[in-house]
Design a protein around this nucleic acid. Structure first.
Lengths: 151, 151
DNA sequence: CCTAAATAGTTCAATATTGAACGTTTTTGG
DNA sequence: CCAAAAACGTTCAATATTGAACTATTTAGG
C-alpha cells in the first residue's frame, strides 16, 4: 500500500510515515466535519470561533498565526463569519492597522454549545489509541512539527 | 499552547493530540510545497502524478480513492494537468463509464525528475525523528487513520 | 522631524475542495 | 429481457487557500 518506491531506506521510511500521517490527519478531521456541518461551519470557521472562545479577542494577524493560515485567507473566513453575525471586527484605536476580532453573543452561544460535543467526538476518534499511545503520538508530532520551522 | 479547555482528561488529551497531529501534517506538507512550486505543481497535482508513476494507468474513481478526494475534485485537478499536457484521459472501451488516466511522456519525465528530490526532502523533514520514532509514528497514525473508517 | 522600511489587511487570480443534482452506462433482480 | 438500482464522471455554487500587488498605518534611522 505505501509508496512502491525504490530508494534509500530512510527515504522509504519517511515517505511511508508521511502518507500515514497525512491520511490520519485527513481521516480524523473528516470525521469531525460531520458535527460542524450540522452547524453549517467549516473546519476553518470552527477554528476561529474556538480560538476566540479560549483566547478572547484577537487581531487578525494573531488569528492567522494561531491557525497557520495566510492573511488573505483570514479575510475571507472572517468575512463569512461576520456575514452570519458570529463575529465582529473593530479597528484598534491604539494601532489603526489592527482589526480586533471578537465573538458576538450569537457566536459565543454557538461555539459554547458545539464545543463539548466536538470534544467528545475528538475523544471518540482517538479512542482507537490508548492514552499512552496518544501521549506518544502527541510527543512525536510536536517534535516533528516544530522541527519544520527551521528549514 | 494547547487547548485551554476544561473537560474530561481523555478529551483534553485527544484535543491536544489532534492539534499537534494536524499541525505536524500541515508543517511537513508546507515544507514540501517549495520544491513542487518550482515545478508549478500543487500538492494534489503531484499526488496524481506520483500515483500514476508508481501504480500505472488508473481510472478516475481509483485515483480519487487513492488520494482520498471527491470525484468532482479529481475532475478539476485532472483538467489542470491535462491542460498542461502532463496526463491524458481515455474512455475505457470495455466499460464506457470509466476514464483511464495516464502520464504523457512529458508528465513521466517531470515526475521522474522531481520524485528523487521530493523523497530527499521528505527524508530531511523526518530527520527530526529517529528511525525508531518514525516507525512508531507510522504505526500509530496508521492505526488511528484506519479506525476512522468505521465510525 | 521625516523619509524609508516594516506591519496589518484587502483584493485578485488561480487552484482546491466538497456535496448535490444530473446524464450515461452498466449491473441486477424479477 | 427489462426496469430499477448502482456506478462513473461532470457541472455548479459555495467556501477555502495561497501568493502577489496594493493601501493605510506605524516604526525606525539618519
Amino acid at each position: 500500500m505505501p509508496t512502491h518506491y525504490q530508494g534509500e531506506p530512510e527515504e522509504v521510511r519517511a515517505l511511508d510515515a508521511l502518507v500515514k500521517l497525512t491520511r490520519a490527519a485527513d481521516a480524523v478531521n473528516r470525521r469531525l466535519d460531520g458535527l460542524l456541518a450540522e452547524a453549517h461551519l467549516t473546519t476553518s470557521q470552527f477554528g476561529v470561533l474556538e480560538a476566540l472562545l479560549h483566547l478572547g479577542q484577537l487581531c487578525q494577524k494573531d488569528l492567522a498565526a494561531k491557525l497557520l493560515k495566510s492573511d488573505g485567507n483570514l479575510t475571507m473566513v472572517l468575512g463569512n463569519l461576520e456575514k452570519r453575525g458570529l463575529v465582529t471586527r473593530t479597528r484598534d484605536p491604539q494601532d489603526k492597522r489592527l482589526l480586533n476580532v471578537q465573538l458576538t453573543v450569537a457566536g459565543r452561544r454557538l461555539i459554547r454549545s458545539l464545543f463539548p460535543r466536538h470534544a467528545a467526538n475528538v475523544a471518540s476518534a482517538f479512542a482507537a489509541l490508548t492514552p499512552a499511545e496518544q501521549e506518544t503520538l502527541g510527543k512525536l508530532t510536536k517534535k516533528l512539527g516544530l522541527a519544520q520551522a527551521d528549514a
